[in-house]
């Protein structure tokens, strides 16, 4: 457990010290919220900002998680991973430290989005909304940073990783329920959106904002996160003897 903490601290320190990266990663999601929520000429619902906020929150987490895999890729390319693997601490702590840090960074970004949303007039009517939203985002973050680190373990160079990342992130976002309600989707999109794990998170958060607790969504996310973690650990062990 200690190892996880130390690896987490290392990544956190390295991130905080690159000021530009911190600035960009905190501003970008907020910019998305403003552009999509306020500036988009099409409106699918009456109060579109209220509707889009959960979508942007989950999107922030999704992009942050998938982007996070590069941390592991670079540790691998630059020789850090080999140095760490030769240490006596349990090797899996490298993996868990990464997943935790990526998720944590995503939660920080989500916090900015949440703050901007409130400033723009999104109402939070229930005191359970905020903590449960964080819980859902956390589980969702574990799920996708687990996927990201697994991909990072399987590919050998940054370019392949970036290609997979961009191939996955946009389609996942646009085929989810982030931008429009199911009712106005074309038939094919409705099917894709209802299968997309991103939609599970968005619908659950949207439910929380409306005061309902969708146990189903959370259960599915937890189950998927656990499966992904198991696969990730398996791949990690295979990739490192």
């Amino acid at each position: 457990m200690k190892g996880v903490q130390y690896y987490f601290e290392r990544d956190l320190k390295r991130w905080i010290r690159s000021k530009r990266a911190v600035f960009a990663s905190l501003v970008m999601p907020a910019a998305w919220l403003i552009f999509v929520g306020l500036a988009l000429p099409i409106r699918f619902t009456n109060n579109y900002l209220d509707f889009i906020t959960p979508g942007i929150l989950v999107m922030t987490m999704l992009f942050a998680s998938l982007q996070g895999g590069t941390l592991l890729i670079f540790d691998k390319i630059l020789g850090f991973l080999n140095k760490f693997l030769a240490l006596p601490v349990p090797r899996e702590s490298i993996l868990f430290g990464k997943i935790l840090f990526i998720t944590f960074r995503g939660l920080l970004q989500s916090t900015v989005v949440l703050g901007v949303a409130v400033l723009l007039g999104v109402k939070i009517n229930y005191f359970t909304t905020i903590p449960f939203t964080y819980l859902v985002l956390f589980i969702f973050g574990i799920l996708f940073s687990g996927i990201a680190t697994t991909i990072a373990l399987l590919v050998d160079d940054y370019d392949s990783y970036a290609a997979i990342n961009s191939m996955a992130s946009m389609p996942l976002f646009f085929t989810s329920s982030a931008l429009m309600p199911y009712e106005v989707m074309p038939h094919w999109l409705r099917i894709m959106a209802s299968l997309n794990p991103v939609s599970y998170a968005i619908d659950t958060v949207r439910g929380l904002f409306a005061g309902t607790f969708l146990l189903n969504g959370i259960t599915v996310l937890i189950a998927m996160a656990l499966v992904v973690l198991m696969i990730s650990v398996y791949v990690f062990r295979k990739a490192t003897v």
Binding site: Y6, E9, R10, R14, R17, S18, G79, N82, K83, V89
Partner: peptide, 23 residues
């Protein structure tokens, strides 16, 4: 390893301290 893998954004002391903790 031959790669010279040290965290350039951390100080020398922090780099060593990380390993002390991990060990």
């Amino acid at each position: 390893p031959q790669d010279m893998a040290v965290d350039i954004k951390l100080t020398g002391r922090e780099n060593v301290l990380l390993f002390a903790k991990l060990y």
